[in-house]
Amino acid sequence: MSLDYLVPVLVGAIMLTGPAFLLAVAWWRRPAVAPPRSIKAHHYRPGRRQAYSLSRSRVQACLSVSLFAAAVAGLGMARWLPLSPADSALLATLAAPLLWAAGLVFLLTRKRWRRACAVTLVLAAVALCFELVPLVTG
């Protein structure tokens, strides 16, 4: 049996048994009488405000800019990585979604997100020109 199979099984078993063990310990140490609720849930924190504190325009802008930047980065990898064309294309296909997710989190968490989006957009547009112009002109 190869390690291909054994390693995921072992890692998966650890991922399952860890929480199961902790839950069993918590269950074992449960109090004889359930304590009363100490904090009223609706007094805790303004969850609604937290959840909606990202404006729709901010999400839309960051989403579209990060998608564009990830696509351009993927195309750049496909074109310029020092690998064979097939390998470059495959690697770019694998990396682009990760870049998109990381880029989206990065842009959304910037305090000056408009400036960050604008800079990213300009850089991606310039890179795209460098990538596509040679293709178009042959």
Binding site: A71, G74, L75, M77, A78, R79, P85, A86, S88, A89, L90, A92, T93, A96, P97, E131, P134, L135, G138
Partner: peptide, 13 residues
Amino acid sequence: FTLLLNAFVAFGG
């Protein structure tokens, strides 16, 4: 979608 696009660019169109 993405593999087609990337392969097209990687093989110079």
